[in-house]
């Protein structure tokens, strides 16, 4: 992957056999760093047969740096699978990934064989980090776009989705909040069901501490437990 990003593959047979697309794991810090919170990561790939999981890591803080620096064969404590994932996508679904939002959507894309379209978007080419080989899946159409036009179509995820949504039975999205807000608005306008995977700062990751909430039409809900995937019409993203 490009500089500042990495894939970490973890031997975790129990989680690999249970995890569904959109769910996540809490990765605990190495024991030499006992005073840091575990970090939540969406599952990028799960291979139940070989008992391995892969997560995508953007190295942007101390925690991600520590994890990225762990060499092959080192031990990490995991908790998962956690949260509610995506429902199965019907044929013709559109998957919208913004930047690191590719992680749960690559897993979702891999989980079905039906025709589906992935809109893979980022600000600039360097941020479309997912290797092409990882997305080389039968029946998956991929359209790439960047805000600055350095790769693929020049435009935002919203621009791309607006051109593709007609006739789609459902939309599945993960990415930055402004992108999700735009996706929600487009899907509501077209009357298309949409599921959004949200990100929030977490502590416990299991629903106890109520630290990672999002405002919904039914009040605050826990991203870690009631989500991270929510029906678009439920969440109030600017709240």
């Amino acid at each position: 992957m490009g500089p500042g990003f990495c894939r970490i593959t973890l031997a975790a047979p129990d989680i690999a056999s249970l995890v569904e697309p959109g769910q996540f794991v809490q990765v605990f810090m190495p024991p030499e760093h006992p005073h840091m919170l575990p970090r939540p990561f969406s599952i990028y790939k799960a291979d139940a047969e070989n008992g391995v999981l892969t997560i995508l890591v953007e190295i942007k803080g101390k925690g991600s740096r520590l994890l990225a620096d762990r060499g092959p064969g080192s031990f990490l404590k995991l908790l998962g699978p956690l949260g509610r994932g995506f429902p199965p996508p019907p044929p013709g679904s559109i998957l919208v990934a913004g930047g690191m939002g590719i992680a749960p959507l690559a897993f979702l894309a891999e989980s079905v064989n039906k025709p589906r379209t992935l809109l893979y978007c980022a600000r600039t080419a360097d941020l479309l980090v997912c290797p092409g080989a990882d997305l080389d899946l039968p029946g998956l159409q991929i359209i790439r776009a960047t805000d600055d036009g350095t790769t693929g179509i020049k435009g935002t995820a919203a621009d791309l989705l607006s051109g593709q949504i007609e006739g789609a039975p459902a939309v599945f999205a993960c990415g930055p909040r402004p992108m999700l807000t735009a996706v929600k608005e487009i899907c509501l306008r077209w009357g298309v069901n949409a599921w959004l995977s949200l990100e929030e700062r977490m502590a416990c990751g299991i629903g106890a501490c109520v630290g990672c909430v999002v405002l919904t039409i039914d009040g605050y809900k826990r991203v870690c437990r009631d989500g991270p995937v929510f029906p678009a019409e439920e969440v109030i993203l600017d709240g």
């Binding site: 005073h35 929030e200 700062r201 605050y220």
Partner: peptide, 23 residues
């Protein structure tokens, strides 16, 4: 009680800051 608007937590060096607001 509904609790406070997010973000509610942040990690700090050897600690964390929270404002859950007793939801």
């Amino acid at each position: 009680w509904p609790g406070n608007s997010p973000p509610r937590i942040s990690e700090t060096p050897a600690g964390m800051l929270n404002a859950v607001g007793l939801q």
